[in-house]
């Protein structure tokens, strides 16, 4: 499964923090502002540009110094959480082909 940001979510800087702010149209799915730590901010940008989870794993591994499987688990957890909170959408891998 791959992921992409929901349309209408704005990533910006607030008091030095990276945050996700839902626009009016997106607010029906995610009403609150989400703070993004640095690596997740980088992941967000990567997924916004169409990068797959698998292709982001090496970047995450280099940043966190964790092993591949741990990175995959953490990334999947991050993405699933963001989907549950309404900030991201799942993109079936068949749609990528």
């Amino acid at each position: 499964m791959n992921y992409q940001p929901r349309p209408g979510i704005v990533k910006t800087t607030l008091c030095g923090m990276q945050v996700l702010i839902p626009s009016r149209e997106a607010s029906a799915y995610c009403g609150s502002i989400q703070r993004l730590p640095l690596i997740w901010s980088v992941a967000w940008e990567a997924f916004s540009n169409g990068m797959t989870v698998e292709n982001f794993i090496p970047i995450y591994a280099a940043f966190t110094k964790k092993g591949t499987e741990a990175c995959r688990e953490n990334l999947e957890l991050f993405c699933r959480t963001m989907v549950e909170r309404g900030f991201m959408l799942e993109v079936p891998e068949e749609a990528e082909a």
Binding site: V10, T12, L14, C15, G16, V19, S23, E25
Partner: peptide, 28 residues
């Protein structure tokens, strides 16, 4: 510590990404 709570009280249409970013800048 005050950022998100303060931003939540800013009045805006929230329909334009440029305005949303400007709102965050002014809150900062």
């Amino acid at each position: 510590e005050a950022a998100i709570r303060t931003y939540a009280q800013l009045i805006q249409l929230c329909s334009d990404s440029a305005k949303i970013k400007k709102a965050a800048e002014l809150t900062t």
